[in-house]
Every structure is written in C-alpha cells, then in structure tokens.
C-alpha cells in the first residue's frame, strides 16, 4: 500500500460516536460549515467507513460501543488514520474511571491524533485534521 500526494488533498472522514454527549458532534458539524469550508482542501464527511481515510471518534467508548468501534475500525480500508476528538476520548474526561467505560479510545484502537477540548473548537478540529494529513505524509516518507 503506497501513499501518494493525492492523500494530501483528498481526505475523507467518517465520524463515529462511541457514547459522546453530542457536544463534539455539534462542533464537528460546525467545522464543515461554509465559514470554515474544509472541502476546499478536499476534506469531506462520508457516510460509510468503507469510503473513509480518516476515522473521527468522539466519546469515551462505553461498554456496548467497544465491539462496534473495533468493527468500524476494521472496515476502514488501509491506509487510514484515527483522530480522537474531545477530552472524553483522550482520557475519559468527566467520566474518568467510570464503571461503564471500556475506553478511552486508545485502549480499544490505535489513535494517531488527539484533539482535546470539551468540546474542541472547530479550528482545533481542522488543525487536528491537518496533523492527520501530516502523519499520512510522514508515513509516506518512511515507506519511500
């Protein structure tokens, strides 16, 4: 699997909610509004993990979602990056050490980029996507 320059300008994101409070979802939707217009860099949200290059995970991964998260992660075709949006997914946030969590996200699947915040601003989410693109580029450099 070889990464190319095309990835820099065509990153399709799939959004997965693993038990989030919907705050991060609102900010993700805010990040794709005309004000920020990430489509000018080829970034768009897709409806199926099969079409995605970037898996955006929100929420602290409740017990019921662990299996689903793993399955969605497996469905994203390689090469892929995972971005964890919100403090819940990074550490558990307000639900830290809770009995009904299997998270945070990096206990379940490997995470490439963390975007902290409760919820993070749209600018932070876009910055995270840029870092995800950089990671794909770096992988490309290492493989070449």
């Amino acid at each position: 699997m070889k990464l190319t320059k095309s990835f820099n300008r065509s990153l399709w994101a799939f959004h997965f909610n693993s038990g989030s409070c919907n705050g991060c979802e609102i900010e993700i939707v805010a990040a794709i509004t005309p004000r920020y217009d990430p489509e000018r860099f080829g970034i768009k949200l897709v409806g199926s993990p099969r079409h995605a290059d970037l898996l955006i995970v929100t929420g602290p991964v409740v017990k019921k979602m662990r299996d689903r998260l793993l399955r969605v992660y497996e469905q994203v075709p390689d090469p892929k990056v995972v971005m964890c949006v919100g403090v819940c997914g990074s550490s558990g946030g307000p639900f830290y050490d809770s009995y009904n969590l299997d998270g945070p996200v990096d206990d379940v699947i490997p995470v490439d980029v963390y975007v902290p915040g409760c919820p993070p601003r749209p600018e932070a989410i876009i910055y995270g996507v840029v870092r995800a693109q950089e990671k794909l580029e770096r992988l490309e450099g290492e493989r070449a």
Binding site: L3, T4, R50, Q75, D78
Partner: peptide
C-alpha cells in the same frame, strides 16, 4: 479535485 479523489481511491485497499 475529482482527479485527486480518483487517484487516491485507486491506491486504497479494496475491501
């Protein structure tokens, strides 16, 4: 952009 998208898709895994 569609050319870039197609170039990318051609290099993705075919599940």
């Amino acid at each position: 952009q569609p050319f870039i998208d197609v170039a990318k898709l051609l290099r993705k895994e075919n599940v």
